[in-house]
Write a protein that binds this DNA or RNA. Structure first.
Lengths: 341, 341
DNA sequence: CAGATCAATGTAAGCGCTTACATGATCGTC
DNA sequence: GACGATCATGTAAGCGCTTACATTGATCTG
C-alpha cells in the first residue's frame, strides 16, 4: 500500500561528506556561506546519493514554499492556456513554481481547490473573476494569503485585479456591429451565474443596444462549448425575425456558431454576421476568420505574476490594473445585406 | 518579506475543543474512531477557527501525499488538455490530487520538473512518451516513484505505458491517402528530437510510402504551432513537383496548413488534400473538416489514472495497454484531381 | 602577543502533523 | 464480582529540514 519513497536524506548526505546537516543545508541554500572545499565535497556526496530535498520538510522548517496557486475554470479551453503560460513563465523567472487547479466553473469546487492550495502552502493565489461567496474572501484574509484576480476588473472588489473591462469591450464591439448597419442582433452568452466576465459582456451588449435606441435583443445562455454554441446559433436562426448579427460571449461559442451556420447552409457574413471574444488562435483559423475582441492574454499573465509576487514578498499592497482590449475586425462581420434585412 | 501564513493549527483546535491533538487528527482522518459527541465538538471548533490542515506537516508525518504529478510538453495545445482532464477527474474520484507541470518540449526542463514533483512528494508520475535520458529512469527507480507513460506505446520500454501505436496509426492513414490515388505525398512533422510520437508518425508515413513502392517523399520538421504548420505548407507548395496530399503530424499543424492553403488560394481538397492527427476539436471546426486519426484521449487519461493509482497502491506491477485509434475521414481529403496530377 | 574579531561549521530546537503505544473506563462473561 | 476485551482518548516520538545560537580556530590590531 504505497510505502513512502525512501530516497536519501540530508543526514545521509552529511554523514557521507563528514559534515553536519546544517552545512549541507547551507551548501544547498546559500552556497557562499560555505568554504569552497567543503561545498565541493558536499555536492559530490549529493550527486553520488542522488539526493533530492524533501519539499514538505523544507516547507515546514522554512515556512515558505515559493509556490503560487492558480485556479482556472477549465483547462479544456484555450482561453486561459495562453495567459497561464505567460504567468508561469514569469513565476519561473522569479523562482516560483506554479500549481494549477481547475474548478469546472463550479463555485463549490473552486472553494475546495482554494483550500487545497492554501493547505499546500501556496504563498499566493491567482483567481479568475471576482464573483464568489464572501466567505471565500474571509477565509483568504484569515489565512492571510495574498490573492489576485485576473481576466476581470472591478474597482470596488475586495481583491486586487489585473484585468480588462469586459463590459466596455463588449459594448465597443456591439457599437461597431450596429454602426455597420445591423438592427437585429442577438447574443450567445456563456453561463452568467458565478461568472462576472459573462455577465459583464451581456451588460455591455445591452448598453450598446440601448444607447442605439433599439428594442431589447435576445440573449441566450449556454455553456462555453463549441457544440453548445452551434446549437444556440441554430435556435436563434429559427426565430421569426432572424438576427443579422450574432455576437458570441467568446470565440469558442463563435466558432461553434460559425460552423453550424455553414452546416445549415448560411453564408457568413453575407446572410449573418458572427463575432467572438478573446481572440484565441481559433478565431483566426476558422474561415471566415472571426471578428473578435482582442484580449492581451500573455501580457495579463505576465503582469499578474509580477504583481502577485510583489504582494507575496510584501513589496506591494496590491495595485490593480486595467489592460486595454481592442477590436479585431475580420471576415465574419460585414454590413447586413439590404435584400435580406 | 512573505511571512508565513498564520492560520490556526491542530493544537489550537484541540485546545479549544478540550481534547488532545491526536483526537482532532482522528476526527479528521478516521472519524469513526471517535465518539459522536467528541467529534461534534471538535468539528465545531475546526469550523469556528477556520482551520485548514497544513499539508506539508501531514505529508511529513504520514509519508503519503495522495498526489500524482504529470509532466506534459505544453499546456498551450489542446492535444493534452482533454486527456489530462479525464486523468484528473479519475484521480479526484479516487481521492488523489493532480499536480501539472509543463516542459515546453525540452528534455532538461522535463528532468527538472520530475525532480520538483518527486521532491513535492508525488506518489506517482505521469509522463508523455518514452524518449528521455536513461538517467531519468535511474533516478525514478532509486526514488522508487512509480511512473507511467501515456500517448505512446512501446513494449520494450522501461516504463509501463497506456498509449497507442503512433506508427501503425500513421501508416494506416497514409495507406488510405495512397489508396485514394495520391502518388505525390509530403509530411509536415513535429520536431522529432526527444519526441517519439513525432518520430513514430514519420516512420509510419515512410512505411506506407515504401510498401506502396513509391519513391521517398519529403518530410519537413517544424514546431507544433499553427503558424509553423502554415509556413511549412507554403514551402511544400513551392516544390517543383507539388504534392497532392500533405499529411501533418498533428491537427494543429494541419489547421495551419489548411489556413495557409486558403490564404494562398488553393482549393482544399480539390487541389491539395490535407490530413491531421489527434482529432482534437479543431479538426472538426475548420472547413473543410480535417481527415485525421482519432485518438481516444479521454479514455487514455482515465485508464492511465487507474493504472497509475494501482501501481502507487501496490496493486499492480504495471500493465501496459495499447488503445485502438481509428481514421476519421472528412472533407479535407479526396482523390487527387487527374487534371492536376 | 593578549584580546577582539570574524569566518566556517556544529548543535539542537522546532515546524504541524500522524500514529504506535499507554491509559483508563466500560462492559460482558463464567 | 474479578478478569480480560474492547473502546475512546491521551502521550509522545518522530518525519527531514532550516536557522538561531554556540563553538572553534584563524587573523588582526595596537
Amino acid at each position: 500500500m504505497g510505502r513512502m519513497r525512501s530516497g536519501p536524506t540530508l543526514d545521509d548526505v552529511a554523514r557521507r561528506a563528514g559534515v553536519s546537516t546544517a552545512t549541507v543545508s547551507r551548501c544547498l541554500n546559500s552556497p557562499d556561506r560555505v568554504v569552497e572545499e567543503t561545498r565541493e565535497r558536499v555536492l559530490k556526496s549529493v550527486e553520488a546519493l542522488g539526493y533530492t530535498p524533501n519539499f514538505a520538510a523544507r516547507v515546514m522548517a522554512a515556512k515558505r514554499t515559493f509556490t503560487i496557486g492558480a485556479i482556472i475554470p477549465t483547462m479544456e479551453n484555450a482561453i486561459f492556456a495562453r495567459g497561464l503560460q505567460a504567468f508561469q513563465e514569469e513565476l519561473h523567472r522569479r523562482g516560483y513554481t506554479l500549481l494549477v487547479a481547475s474548478s469546472a466553473y463550479r463555485p463549490e469546487v473552486e472553494a475546495e481547490q482554494i483550500r487545497a492550495l492554501v493547505s499546500r502552502g501556496a504563498d499566493g493565489l491567482l483567481l479568475i473573476g471576482h464573483e464568489r461567496p464572501g466567505t471565500v474572501y474571509d477565509y483568504l484574509e484569515r489565512q492571510s494569503v495574498p490573492a489576485l484576480v485576473a481576466w476581470s476588473h472591478d474597482a470596488g472588489a475586495r481583491l486586487t485585479s489585473i484585468g480588462f473591462d469586459n463590459r466596455a469591450a463588449m459594448r465597443a464591439l456591439t457599437r461597431e456591429v450596429i454602426a455597420q448597419g445591423h438592427r437585429r442582433l442577438a447574443m450567445i452568452s456563456g453561463v452568467q451565474a458565478g461568472n462576472d466576465r459573462a455577465r459583464l459582456r451581456v451588460e455591455g451588449f445591452r448598453d450598446a443596444v440601448d444607447e442605439a435606441g433599439l428594442a431589447a435583443m435576445p440573449v441566450v445562455e449556454t455553456p462555453y462549448e463549441i457544440e453548445h454554441g452551434a446549437q444556440a446559433f441554430e435556435d436563434l436562426m429559427a426565430l421569426p425575425l432572424r438576427p443579422t448579427a450574432v455576437l458570441c460571449g467568446n470565440d469558442v461559442l463563435g466558432a461553434g456558431a460559425l460552423r453550424r451556420a455553414q452546416d445549415i447552409g448560411l453564408d457568413v457574413p453575407r446572410e449573418v454576421s458572427i463575432t467572438g471574444f478573446d481572440d484565441i488562435e481559433l478565431a483566426r483559423i476558422v474561415s471566415p476568420a472571426l471578428t473578435t475582441v482582442h484580449v492581451p492574454h500573455r501580457d495579463m499573465g505576465r503582469k499578474a505574476a509580477r504583481e502577485l509576487i510583489d504582494m507575496v514578498e510584501g513589496k506591494s499592497q496590491g495595485r490593480s490594473e486595467t489592460l486595454a482590449t481592442d477590436l479585431r475586425l475580420r471576415g465574419s462581420l460585414c454590413p447586413p445585406d439590404p435584400a435580406i434585412g
